[in-house]
Design a protein around this nucleic acid. Structure first.
Length: 287
DNA sequence: CACTTGACCTGTCCGC
DNA sequence: TGCGGACAGGTCAAGT
């Protein structure tokens, strides 16, 4: 599910409510086949110090110098419900439109203020784990990630240099490669390339500095606008209150198959590239 | 080594 | 209305 803007939206939302709370109960709902994905007993009785995000991973720093890492993959949700909300019956959460807990709920955290945090995941690709905070940089995914695209220190030149080693990879695939730059997935790679007027199949290592400069600007712009609109809700993504994000109303390419390009009117096409759907304008984004 | 493909899951949607 | 197939925000291991 979520890419950088969606995880960032959840991080900001939970940052308003979780720090200072103590986890007084952790309930892992029975699903023996996937129980191993939730190695989280060390979080019990711990208070939450602060919240971070690295790439698409959400991180809760705990009082005991450990951290709880969440990866939501395609359909993960993290929903905070105050005691009052629960007393009022909770709010229906897509995709099942039923209150928490529902059949996609795998873990329920209870806090000392009576609130609960539900981890839902329809497709069960997501994971949660508690590891020493000092070991975060050894995590298999996080140890290899590229720079944060919205970090002021990240530049078009660095993106160009990093793309040079991707000689035979389509630029769309390279942008989604977390070791090149972190946090970009299928939606925002399409959006960035539409803004940059670059065909998704152009080879990453063969792009000019000028073209990469446009892609850099497209990445920053699309991610910033997406965060302003609280992310993209295609199917199951919701924020920590169970609310959808509205960025897709402002998208130019993703999920726009057959609709006129907002620049030239040519219908947007969809094409599989390395197993993922790419959406682009065949006229503005020439091969 | 660089690169691509399928696997992991469940639900929804579309065409016949 | 039912049925089969394609498709869905992401990583991984295994293959070429």
């Amino acid at each position: 599910m979520p890419e950088l803007p969606e995880v960032e939206t959840i991080k900001r939302g939970l940052g308003q409510v979780l720090p200072g709370l103590t986890i007084v109960d952790i309930e892992v709902l029975p699903d023996p086949r996937f129980h191993y994905k939730y190695d989280i007993a060390d979080a019990l009785d711990q208070s939450i110090v602060s919240i971070d995000r690295m790439a698409k991973v959400l991180i809760l720093h705990l009082k005991n110098d450990k951290s709880m890492l969440f990866h939501l993959k395609m359909t993960g949700q993290l929903i905070y419900e105050s005691e009052e909300d629960r007393y009022a019956g909770g709010h229906p959460i897509p995709p099942l439109n039923s209150p928490m807990p529902n059949k996609t709920t795998h873990v329920i955290f209870s806090f000392d203020n009576g609130a609960k945090l539900y981890f839902n995941d329809l497709r069960k690709f997501g994971w949660i784990k508690v590891i020493p905070t000092a070991a975060i940089q050894n995590d298999n995914l996080l140890k290899t990630i590229g720079p944060e695209p919205l970090d002021p220190k990240f530049t078009a030149k660095e993106l160009f240099d990093r793309l040079q080693r991707k000689k035979k990879t389509p630029i769309k695939t390279a942008l989604m490669d977390q070791t090149v730059v972190s946090g970009i997935g299928n939606i925002y790679s399409d959006e960035a390339l539409w803004l940059a007027k670059i065909h998704p199949k152009r080879l990453a290592g063969a792009l000019s500095k000028k073209e990469v400069d446009e892609i850099y600007k497209g990445i920053v712009k699309s991610l910033q606008v997406a965060i302003e609109h609280k992310g993209s809700s295609s199917k199951s993504y919701v924020n920590h209150k169970g609310e959808a994000g509205t960025f897709l109303e402002y998208a130019n390419a993703y999920h726009h198959t057959g609709l006129p390009c907002k620049r030239c009117g040519t219908p947007i096409v969809r094409e599989k590239i390395n197993g993922r759907s790419a959406h682009y304008c065949p006229k503005c984004q020439r091969l």
